[in-house]
Nucleic acid binder design. Structure first.
Length: 543
DNA sequence: TTCGACACATAGCA
DNA sequence: ATGCTATGTGTCGA
């Protein structure tokens, strides 16, 4: 990515009208969570504008995505089990049967469903969770050798020298002797040609464990200002005479600082660790069904491809390019405990509270815009890209797991070898049948949440590959407002079952602000002021 | 001006 | 080494 000819996201972000995507619908409803739980609520998530009224012409249920991009589970949900719980899901759900639909139960996208927004009852104030240690999961039965060390924001080795900040990360291949007899059109990172540089540290950042409470890009910058990520094309424009290079040179915020070169599409170093995610923010409580202990969710998430840190401190991605994101969660209990109990959440009623069983957990990603008036959605391509279908990113039913390291995610990409695929499956997926057989687990037991998971593949780690910001984003240059995106990793609780299945966001973690560059080179200069710059004007930033 | 569609190019994979 | 694949991105034209 990095080196595209793409411009940036403009000052204003809209959906194209001709795609039927309504504007001015807040992507983050800020209604208080308690008000959401009032008796008048049709269901847990009903206050979301896209959920509250399926038939509303103003805010259709699937407002956020066009029909072809409706959210869906990777697999069907065949079970219709309803947990036996004092909270009585039956009663709760029974109040609003007609409104209870779950696109997640459909294998195919459903034009009237948008799970992506179900239960996004984000509280007005995000309260960081504490005590995010997760001792138990280290002892879970599955052997996952790729697990990274948890919870520390790690910087490998020594910090790079300040001078590195101004040193080129890329060189033009023609400058390399003998290697390329013909004038190449692509560049190669210095890191590939020279001994390890400080930029290497970047890939070792455990982004998911970096507590960041602000979404502002500058917040991330402060954690990275001491080293230089592997940015692209720092100097030496390959096409000095081309309009392409000329255009690129106008950007001060540009990672390559005017040295735009094409990036080889399969270059290994397209995989880079992106911005760190915040700690999990709790949206709804999670209780154990057996002890009624309130649990502290922890979300691990990392972007492994598609974003890089510019000198200005902004994380930059490109609308036309893929990004990859992985998400895992745990509840602060060991895996065997997880598999031997049930869970429930609660909602507030006008009088008292009501417990609602969680049939299973799921992991989801969302994109949001700093401008709550603007909506942003994501699409996922198949390897066939244009020749294949395009859907919204799936929502993964998931059990607690640990995030594989960056290299593992990178290695998991585009493997076709059966042996390798199987290996990756063991890392990213949870085989419940295998677990039952090895644990002699009583799968008929009524007190295990595992029994109410979908029958098909369950994730340990949700891996979202080939994700792009929707093409529906378009820009407008009439405002001076700074706009940026954030990516959110969400732990979803699936309530009810069958046609009554509901999804509520239990917790989420988010990136700092991201700049996503569009495809119009003519907007390149404007980009310098379109992105959030933080308290100090990064226009003055010099690499 | 923007974007879908197509095209080109190149590194990874088997 | 060879051929296929995946994907960054250049380009055309509606």
């Amino acid at each position: 990515m990095g080196l595209s000819t793409e411009d940036h996201l403009q000052d204003d972000v809209h959906f194209d009208d001709d795609e039927g995507l309504p504007q001015n619908i807040p992507s983050y409803p800020l209604s208080d969570i308690h008000s959401l739980d009032s008796q008048n609520s049709s269901i847990l998530t009903q206050h979301h504008p896209s959920l509250s009224d399926f038939s509303s012409s103003r805010a259709p249920y699937n407002a956020k995505y066009p029909p072809q991009l409706q959210r869906r589970l990777p697999r069907a949900f065949p079970l219709a089990t309803v947990l036996n719980h004092p909270g009585s899901t039956h009663e709760i759900m029974g109040q609003h049967d007609d409104n209870l639909h779950s696109p997640l139960t459909h294998e195919q996208p459903h034009p009237n469903h948008d799970l992506s927004t179900v239960g996004q009852d984000y509280p007005p104030q995000q309260v960081p969770l504490h005590g995010l240690s997760m001792p138990g999961l280290l002892s879970k039965p599955a052997l996952i050798p790729h697990i990274q060390a948890p919870l520390q924001y790690q910087f490998a080795g020594q910090m790079p020298q300040p001078s590195m900040q101004s040193q080129p990360q890329l060189i033009n291949i023609p400058h390399m002797p003998q290697q390329y007899p013909q004038m190449p059109q692509y560049t190669q990172h210095l890191a590939q040609l020279l001994p390890p540089q400080p930029s290497h540290q970047h890939s070792q950042i455990l982004s998911s464990s970096m507590p960041i409470t602000s979404q502002l890009p500058q917040m991330s910058a402060q954690h990275h200002q001491h080293y230089l990520p592997p940015l692209q094309g720092m100097h030496e424009p390959p096409y000095l005479n081309s309009s392409y290079a000329t255009q690129k040179r106008h950007s001060e915020d540009d990672i390559s600082d005017g040295t735009k070169q094409r990036v080889a599409p399969r270059r290994a170093d397209l995989f880079r660790v992106g911005p760190p995610f915040s700690e999990a923010v709790e949206h709804r409580p999670i209780f154990r069904g057996d002890t009624h202990e309130r649990l502290t969710p922890h979300i691990e998430a990392r972007i492994d491809r598609g974003f890089e840190l510019a000198g200005s401190g902004n994380w930059i991605g490109y609308k036309r390019n893929y990004f990859t994101m992985v998400v895992a969660f745990d509840l602060g209990i060991d895996f065997s405990t997880f598999t031997n109990t049930t869970f429930y959440t609660s909602r507030n009623l006008a009088v008292g509270t009501e417990d609602v069983p969680i049939n299973y957990f799921a992991l989801n990603i969302e994109a949001k815009c700093s401008d709550s008036e603007a909506q942003v959605s994501l699409v996922q391509h198949t390897p066939k890209r244009d020749k294949g279908p395009q859907n919204a990113p799936p929502i993964f039913p998931a059990v607690p797991g640990r995030l594989p390291d960056h290299e593992t995610v990178k290695e998991s990409c585009n493997k076709r070898n059966d042996t390798k695929l199987e290996l990756m499956n063991k890392i990213f997926n949870f085989d419940r049948d295998d677990f039952y057989s090895h644990q002699r687990h009583n799968q008929n037991t009524n007190n295990s949440v595992l029994g109410t998971y979908p029958q098909n593949k369950i994730a340990r780690v949700a891996r979202f590959e080939r994700i792009q910001f929707t093409k529906s984003i378009r820009t407008k240059v009439t405002t001076m407002q700074h706009k940026y995106f954030t990516l959110h990793a969400e732990l979803v609780g699936v309530l009810g079952s069958g046609s009554k299945e509901q999804h509520v966001v239990l917790a989420s973690a988010n990136t700092p602000g991201l700049l996503v560059r569009g495809r119009s080179p003519s907007k390149y200069h404007t980009e310098k002021t379109s992105g959030y710059r933080g308290p100090s004007d990064s226009e003055n930033y010099s690499m």
